[in-house]
């Protein structure tokens, strides 16, 4: 399988990225661009909206398209305005777990409930990276972060279950350790009519892996491969996994 050249979708002045060594966000960026290329999307007709945080930098400034880099937690609300006024534009939110499901969780569930015709790609690195590694609402129980030095006493959100609960029409999860699957999932999300949510489990070696027994990119990728389990929406809701394992796949793609 040949990989398309995606340089034309990037701002050359923004390369190389500022992402840390081993950050999975570059893989997500690459997969998103391949998906756009393979779908032959009209790039000038797309708008990429992000919030604040490492993942918010995936579209802005890297992508040579219309980009709206907004406030922390609010990209879905901004995207809702863009889409409501210009339904002909393809509106894609790319941002982190802090943005999408911690500070901005309310906007996420309401966009799902409304079936707003946007695609939300949440890069989940399970930690607040840009501020140096604090607990997020996606940090697994027991993990060490700067604000949970004795281990996270709280549970983490399963964001896919959350948006399924809000009747999202398209819900999927994939990891940056499985880029071919990730491309497929993003393509399916981008072609879905109505609200589409893709959780991309990413890696943060600098602020998460090093504090939790995965001090290298290789260790983090191996961990994602080991812990991900193919599953369906029904599995997600009825057969919870233990030991940090999680389901990947398209959990629903029916009408929203």
């Amino acid at each position: 399988m040949s990989v398309p050249d995606v340089k034309k979708y990037l701002r050359s002045e923004a390369m190389p990225t500022l992402f840390c060594t081993g950050c999975g966000h570059g893989i997500l960026l690459h997969c998103l661009l391949i998906a756009i290329d393979e779908l032959k999307k009209d790039y000038d007709n797309m708008v990429f909206v992000s919030g604040i945080g490492c993942a918010a930098w995936i579209p802005s400034p890297h992508m040579a398209a219309d980009t709206l880099h907004t406030t922390h937690g609010r990209p879905i609300a901004y995207a809702t305005g863009v889409k409501a006024y210009r339904p002909d534009l393809d509106v894609v939110v790319v941002s982190g777990d802090g943005d999408i499901v911690s500070i901005g969780g309310n906007h996420l569930i309401h966009a799902a409930r409304r079936n707003t015709d946007i695609t939300v790609i949440m890069a989940n690195n399970k930690v607040y990276g840009m501020t140096g590694g604090q607990q997020a609402s996606t940090t697994p129980h027991g993990c060490i972060t700067l604000t949970t030095p004795q281990g996270n006493p709280e549970r983490d959100f399963d964001t896919c279950r959350l948006v399924l609960g809000a009747d999202a029409g398209f819900v999927a999860r994939e990891t940056v350790a499985a880029p071919r699957n990730l491309i497929k999932v993003i393509k399916a999300a981008l072609t879905h009519e109505g609200f589409a949510f893709v959780e991309t489990v990413s890696t943060c070696v600098t602020h998460f892996g090093k504090m939790n027994g995965m001090p290298s990119p290789e260790a983090m990728i191996a961990n994602l491969k080991e812990k991900s389990v193919r599953g369906t929406g029904t599995d997600l809701l009825t057969k919870p996994l233990e030991d940090g394992r999680f389901y990947t796949g398209i959990f629903t793609s029916g009408a929203g």
């Binding site: 609300a77 901004y78 305005g81």
Partner: peptide, 25 residues
Amino acid sequence: TFVQMEDEIASIAAVIGAAWAGANA
């Protein structure tokens, strides 16, 4: 275009997003 948002944070965010899409919002 009229939208009712989930709170005032989202309301002004949608207004600004619409303005960048070309609206008098």
